[in-house]
């Protein structure tokens, strides 16, 4: 229905599900991404019970304000070609980014997105 209403703009559709087990069905119906508040709630409560203070980290990351640290996905067009040409490992890439770290907008590498998959802190 959303696609039909906005044929020209091709909106990127985020759907919320109560039960994540229906994720594939929802994606099949046209959702680009699926979120589930219940799944996140349980995960944050569990993590915070195990590692006290963890809920504050998620809270910080979910705030969308100026001068707040957020997660960004930097795509190929904004990454220096040398990262690909030199076949950098994750560790090499993190080192390079750390060397360029500047006070106005310090950057920390936390993962790689390959296709639809996000790999945080990948092993070699």
């Amino acid at each position: 229905a959303i696609d039909k209403l906005a044929k020209k703009t091709k909106p990127y559709i985020i759907a919320e599900l109560m039960d994540r087990s229906n994720k594939e069905l929802t994606e099949g119906a046209g959702a680009n991404e699926v979120v589930s508040a219940g799944f996140y709630r349980t995960g944050i409560m569990l993590q915070s019970a195990l590692y006290h203070g963890m809920s504050h980290i998620f809270h910080e990351l979910l705030q969308y304000e100026q001068n707040k640290t957020s997660v960004f996905i930097v795509t190929e067009k904004n990454i220096p070609q040398e990262f690909y040409d030199e076949k950098l490992t994750f560790q090499d890439a993190a080192r390079k980014i750390n060397e360029k770290r500047k006070a106005p907008n310090p950057v920390i590498l936390i993962g790689v997105k390959r296709g639809d998959q996000i790999i945080l802190n990948p092993h070699s």
């Binding site: 957020s70 960004f72 996905i73 490992t89 950057v107 790689v112 997105k113 390959r114």
Partner: peptide
């Protein structure tokens, strides 16, 4: 994970969209 390949994107923490 071996190395960064063509098409890979990087996931980072920053205050603004970064220039790498």
């Amino acid at each position: 994970f071996d190395h960064i390949k063509k098409g890979d994107a990087l996931v980072v923490l920053a205050e603004k969209f970064p220039k790498l």
